[in-house]
Design a protein around this nucleic acid. Structure first.
Lengths: 263, 263
DNA sequence: GCCTAGGTCCCGTCC
DNA sequence: GGACGGGGCCTAGGC
């Protein structure tokens, strides 16, 4: 069975339910709870309705009714325990390194589900910085005529250079790539790499180019004053399609046809 | 009613269910689906079991059975629509700025819940950078004897200085605060501010201090070579307790007492 | 384990 | 709306 659920469970059934499904299914509790966290920081959250999600890998999310971000959480690798204390149901998640403890005081569970979430597919994403790197190596003159990329992720003491190359006059060229609008931080990053290279090879023989679809105003000003360069380039999106071994069997959804329009 | 749910719904009931609860409740679908996203980047995700969460503020999350992060998402402010197309149930979320479209092809819904998630409490968090700022303003000699903080979040063309002050010799002192171990980026940030101030007030009259609980090795090396300083300081955690207007009424959970030990 | 940097980062805040 | 930087950032990839 893919899904088990309890509606308005009492504590005994809830405990058994969690015991049975934890580390095997994703458990979701629609609950009224409060939360205490202590670790890298420390927080409290008073009583309210929230969604608790516990995944088999130990990650834990507590969601409010707004925002993409969980209000409290624990990353994967954390370990779950739970008990009754002073007549309250408490879920505790502990992360070892760094030491972080999250406690959920659960006052009421309106609904609980456990989902044996079988997923063998990974996200296929394009338009990231890596795609820019590939594009530049395949077609270096996107940067400029005569540019020769030499290595990617080139490590120096002050960081990791996205692309290191040479121009047609044999100057070192350091590229810092950004998939989105570059900001002050991006310029500082490029400058850090360029300064190390200049200290090694001399002022005149090192250039730094920020490669991005656009620049913030502050970044542009700083770039100019530091004699760094900008090359406008947008990360490429490769063509993608969903594999079409799909929609074959037991699509319980396809039972009734409705108007083919957005609701 | 706090929670409505459907178990193994057919499409007609599912559509009505969503129509009824969207923008009012958090909707959770335990489903088999695939996902297409196109916006700042572009992605596909082939068929598999996932948890879909749609919040009243328009945020949308698609979770796999692992990790804290959703595999696909849309932030709050996005708008939801849905339809049947080629006998498939499709949920579409559109974000206006930047333009981003997310489409979920839903093959099967094992379980659906709608949760009228009432929450009037906000997270109360301590141990953040702001707490360090407060601490330093209250007790400036935590930085050094004679330090006088003058302003916080002081804006200059190359960014925003956490704390600007003067030392006992009337030198400008620029503090860059980090609540956690400071890295290369932190040093570059501080350097960027210091260089602007030096260009304005002269080399000898500006100091830069990185204030953090610790430093990465690379950051330490860079800091030294740039003649910047480090002051070890850990963000303070204020005392906090949950407000105790709690555990009064209708705690359906407290029906059976179990052993008071962690399970 | 530490270090480094990317991210569809999200998010708040201030201009 | 752009800009800037924090975050309990998370996560991946090297070493």
């Amino acid at each position: 069975m893919k899904v088990h659920f309890l509606h308005k469970p009492d504590i005994k059934n809830l405990v058994n339910f969690i015991k049975e499904h934890i580390y095997d299914s994703v458990i979701i509790l629609l609950s009224r709870c409060s939360v205490i966290y202590d670790g890298r920081a420390k927080s409290t959250l008073n009583e309210g309705d929230r969604i608790i999600m516990i995944k088999p890998d130990g990650s834990l999310l507590i969601h409010k009714n707004k925002k993409r971000e969980p209000v409290n959480w624990q990353p994967s690798g954390s370990s779950i325990s739970y008990k009754i204390e002073n007549k309250q149901f408490i879920i505790r998640s502990i992360r070892k390194k760094p030491r972080e403890v999250l406690e959920i005081i659960v006052y009421e569970v309106y609904h609980a589900c456990a989902f044996k979430c079988e997923d063998y597919e990974e996200l296929n994403l394009t338009g990231s910085e890596g795609d820019m790197v590939d594009m530049i190596f395949k077609n270096p003159k996107l940067i400029e005529e005569g540019f020769k990329p030499l290595s990617k992720e080139y490590q120096i003491p002050t960081g990791i250079i996205d692309i290191l190359g040479k121009d047609e006059n044999n100057n070192w060229v350091i590229l810092e790539l950004k998939r989105r609008r570059a900001d002050l931080q991006s310029v500082s990053q490029l400058k850090r790499y360029v300064e190390y290279f200049k200290s090694k090879y001399g002022e005149k023989r090192v250039r730094g180019i920020l490669v991005a679809p656009s620049l913030t105003t502050g970044a542009l000003n700083l770039l100019k004053s530091e004699n760094l360069e900008f090359k406008k380039l947008t990360p490429p999106k490769k063509d993608q399609t969903l594999s079409k071994k799909l929609n074959k069997k037991h699509n319980t959804i396809n039972k009734i046809a409705i108007l083919d329009e957005w609701l």
